[in-house]
Nucleic acid binder design. Structure first.
Length: 501
RNA sequence: GGCCCAUUAGUCUAUUGGUUAGGACGUCAGAUUUUCAUUCUGGAAAGAGGGGUUCGAUUCCCCUAUGGGCUACCA
């Protein structure tokens, strides 16, 4: 029987999970679903920091918003727990002992500062088989037993892995192919810190083994630490999992994704807002739909070869394949993200827009319109936007009187040349509107058709404030007559004062 | 600096030895439209540079350049 495929998403809770981590999570999730495997969430908190608690909360919330369903792990069921590394220290110690017996690890006594100094004086220094015998550690010949015992007793040591000398380690990566790294170029990485806690390298390998992880899908930044992981597997004589490294995400200028940079570029990097971590710019807050965001995530490094951009979740699952993941790093293209979101926006029901508008608009103004009318406004405006928030931008003139008028220069000169005519025209409007209290009595189409283009533009400016928006017929028939009259009067007064009539 | 990875238009990418180098976002133009948008049609726009291998190279190899990653008692 074939072994069940098990993958894990193993974020470290050191700040808010961003689009890069989410992409990794999503690809793991896809692979699990495709193979009826397990998708495990493991929290890698071997390094304890300030915001651990909130960061974990955020991971859970973010995954939920992206509809990524964990079926085993932290905060979920599972028989391989605990799924948080700070609660597994005992386990790591147990496995450390095994390596100790096999003499595959050793104690190293340099303090952080000592090593720093050493590195400054010795360029290209690497702590490994080529140098370790000259340094302060339990393998070195420089130290006598007394000094060694001193450090051991006082627990002033870290535990390092003993990497072999001049050995090529080959990482068989499903995306990048075989990558050869010589052990002379890698450090004897620290496995246990002086505070008796494991480092990521050790903890994650032990966990991956104990949790029966079959495929390690993670960002490319991990390629260079893979030899250490492989070495640990080999030391235990455990079967290696498959490695799949994903291309990195870069911002639109080719730099690393980071909060400060992305805010400048106005590209959100976080999925949702979260006050406790000070996240107030996100895909959700910018008006992205979860389904669109999933589509965006999928296309971050993955290209199905059929010249399509919009994929439902089902299609993604059907088509997803590591063969179609490209090797070069991915630049985020916010314009394209918006375009993808637009495609999804076109499909959703009006109630989402309705909800948004209701929240946005003061109730006394919102209630001027019946639900039917709001729906009509939505229907007429929704095809103009690519983010749900923008429904307000394209419909605000239904709810707010124009505060200022944006009049193009050619219209200004038209006004100046035809002052009296225009005032007459506006007055005429007002009279017609006042006469007919019920909308149905007014044939707006007739009025509009009789107007010259210039006059029609003027009418639009008087009601909308600028030359944008849906057709005048619908604007006039949707807004209450009383309000239209008011707006026209305002505009008339504006012209009179502005152009001294 | 050392080691590792990548390099097709502004961006995401297709094409793994023979193509008018295909698609998408963006951009530009035209059509539709009472304005603005939408929509539709069309255009411009690419193989980093230099060497090989080959009848032939975007595709294979080497060098250079550029970008990125790792080089923490961070993950």
């Amino acid at each position: 029987m074939k072994k069940k495929i098990r993958v894990r998403f193993a974020p470290s809770p050191t700040g808010a999970l961003h689009i890069g981590g989410l992409r990794t999570a999503f690809f793991n999730y896809l692979f699990a679903i495709q193979n009826q495997g397990d998708f495990i969430l493991r929290i890698e908190d071997t390094d304890i920091r300030k915001n651990t608690k909130y960061s974990i909360e955020y991971i859970l919330k973010a995954l939920k918003w992206c509809k990524i369903k964990v079926n085993e792990g932290y905060n979920h069921r599972g028989e391989f727990g605990p799924y948080i590394q700070s609660k597994r220290i005992k386990i790591y110690k147990k496995y450390l002992k095994i390596l100790k017996k096999k003499k595959l690890i050793y104690y190293s006594f340099e303090s952080k500062d000592e090593l720093k100094k050493y590195k400054i004086n010795n360029k290209n220094f690497i702590y490994n088989s080529l140098t370790r015998y000259k340094l302060k550690n339990s393998l070195s010949k420089n130290n006598n037993k007394k000094t060694i015992n001193y450090y051991l007793k006082n627990k002033k040591y870290v535990i390092r892995i003993k990497t072999p000398k001049n050995k090529d380690i080959i990482i068989k990566d499903k995306i990048y192919g075989n990558i050869k790294i010589n052990t002379n170029n890698i450090d004897d990485k620290i496995l246990f810190r002086s505070n008796d806690t494991p480092t990521y390298h050790f903890a994650s390998v032990i966990d991956d083994y104990l949790m029966n992880i079959t495929h390690i899908i993670r960002g490319k930044e991990w390629i260079y630490s893979s030899p250490i992981h492989i070495l640990i597997y080999n030391n235990f004589k455990w079967k290696l999992p498959k490695f799949i490294h994903l291309p990195l995400l870069l911002n639109n200028k080719g730099g690393k994704i980071s909060k400060s940079k992305m805010v400048k570029n106005k590209i959100p990097i976080h999925p949702i807002n979260y006050n406790k971590l000070n996240i107030n710019n996100s895909y959700k807050s910018n008006g992205f739909l979860p389904n669109a965001f999933i589509n965006i995530l999928a296309l971050l490094g993955w290209t199905p070869k059929n010249n399509k951009e919009i994929y439902s979740f089902k299609e993604i699952i059907k088509l997803f394949n590591f063969k179609n993941i490209n090797k070069s790093d991915v630049h985020l293209n916010y314009n394209k993200f918006r375009w993808i979101n637009k495609k999804y926006l076109n499909k959703i029901s009006n109630k989402y827009y309705y909800k948004y508008l209701k929240k946005k608009i003061k109730s006394n103004i919102f209630n001027l319109y019946t639900k039917k009318k709001i729906n009509k406004i939505i229907n007429l405006t929704k095809n103009r936007i690519s983010l749900i928030n923008e429904i307000w931008d394209v419909s605000s003139y239904f709810f707010l009187n124009p505060k200022t008028y944006f009049i193009p220069t050619n219209i200004i000169s038209y006004i100046k040349d035809n002052k009296k005519k225009i005032i007459l025209l506006l007055n005429k409007f007002i009279i017609i509107l006042k006469k007919n209290k019920k909308k149905t009595d007014i044939n707006y189409n007739d009025i509009i058709k009789k107007l010259s283009i210039f006059n029609l533009k003027l009418l639009r400016i008087s009601i909308v404030g600028k030359l944008i928006g849906i057709d005048m017929y619908n604007i006039l028939s949707l807004i209450k007559t009383k309000i239209i009259i008011k707006r026209i009067i305002n505009f008339k007064n504006f012209i009179i004062s502005q152009y001294k009539i």
